[in-house]
């Protein structure tokens, strides 16, 4: 649906030039929710603005819905932009227009006739749950309501793609969750492709199918959210995840382990990371396995949560017992589709 080919964006000229994006490639499939996470200054804002050419890349091609946007003339680009909805961190609503007129705005730009505008706006008001606020001005709304208006406005022209530029960063956690839920609903109901940028792993974890980590103008890691989230490779990715799940550096863990277990026996015992995804998460596999083998375990660290409504657990455990018994336990767990990694 969206394809960025060798995108480079350089700001300024010669002496003072800064490179915001460097040879960046990215593909977003039809109907998926794709998240790009990065620190401020990593280039994610530039990246999302390159997709509808609010920023024109210095080189490279932008393809959306099978069309090369970078090759289009002004007028054609304006028409194509109507196929791409966008929502913003600060909502960017017209302060001089009511909720109704804000949502009607893109339709009026496109020259849609009045009756069609009315029925479309009413449909969208219902979709985002703002029927009761149609005559209000943005200053009379809460942040969450403003973003709902933003979403309704972005959907007015029935776009193929929705771009979300830090859409929840200005909202409180509760409102963030309700907006994320709305985005997920829209994605499922309308089959809309969503590309979002954020600096919050929570957002990625809640609704994204795939994620890319952007750092210093390039993508350092990407893949399905569960894969990247549970087995991060790049230090930046690890850092984002460790902020979501309390610290996961092995060295730190070993120190903790020595502190709590203390005894000589535990010292040499291996530390494993057990990762469970899906229905297995809430199973009794671990207790069954240790009951059979007689191995003892201590949980050094653990998370049980969900990735886009799919449950997962990740436990760091120290097994104590005969090495053969420990190995047997590990094998049993593996048979039960629990991913076991030795980490120390």
């Amino acid at each position: 649906m969206i394809e960025l080919k060798d995108i480079t964006k350089i700001y300024g000229s010669k002496a003072k030039a800064t490179t915001a994006l460097k040879d960046l490639n990215l593909t977003v499939e039809q109907g998926e929710i794709f998240g790009v996470i990065g620190h401020s200054g990593a280039g994610k804002s530039t990246l999302i603005r390159c997709i509808n050419l609010l920023e024109r890349p210095s080189s490279g091609e932008v393809w959306v819905g099978g069309r090369n946007l970078t090759s289009l003339g002004k007028r054609e680009l304006q028409l194509q932009r109507r196929r791409i909805g966008m929502i913003f961190q600060h909502f960017n609503l017209l302060s001089s227009a009511t909720v109704y007129d804000n949502i009607a705005f893109p339709l009026k730009l496109a020259g849609v006739d009045k009756a069609a505008v009315k029925s479309k706006v009413e449909e969208l008001l219902k979709l985002v749950g703002l029927e009761a606020h149609s005559g209000k001005y943005p200053s009379q709304l809460s942040g969450g309501q403003k973003q709902r208006v933003g979403i309704a406005r972005a959907l007015a022209n029935d776009p193929d793609v929705l771009l979300c530029d830090e859409a929840t960063s200005a909202l409180d956690p509760q409102t963030t969750d309700s907006i994320l839920k709305l985005l997920l609903d829209i994605n499922r109901k309308l089959g809309l492709t969503i590309l979002l940028i954020t600096h919050e792993m929570h957002v990625i974890q809640s609704i994204c199918d795939r994620v890319a980590v952007i750092h210093a103008g390039g993508i350092v890691e990407q893949g399905p959210v569960a894969e990247v989230f549970l087995k991060p490779k790049h230090p930046v990715t690890k850092e984002f995840i460790s902020r979501e799940v309390a610290g996961s550096a092995p060295a730190q863990l070993q120190a903790q382990g020595t502190g709590t277990a203390g005894e000589g026996q535990a010292q040499g015992s291996p530390v494993y990371r057990l990762t469970c995804l899906g229905d297995h998460t809430y199973s009794t596999d671990l207790s069954e396995a240790v009951l059979r083998t007689g191995v003892q375990f201590a949980i050094l660290q653990g998370t049980v949560s969900t990735i886009k409504e799919i449950p997962y657990s990740q436990l760091t455990v120290r097994f104590t017992g005969q090495p053969e018994a420990v190995e047997l336990t590990v094998n049993r767990l593996r048979e039960r589709h629990i991913d076991v990694e030795v980490i120390g």
Partner: peptide
């Protein structure tokens, strides 16, 4: 931002 939003809408 509002101007940018309008351009983004075509």
């Amino acid at each position: 931002g509002v101007i940018e939003a309008a351009y983004a809408m075509g």
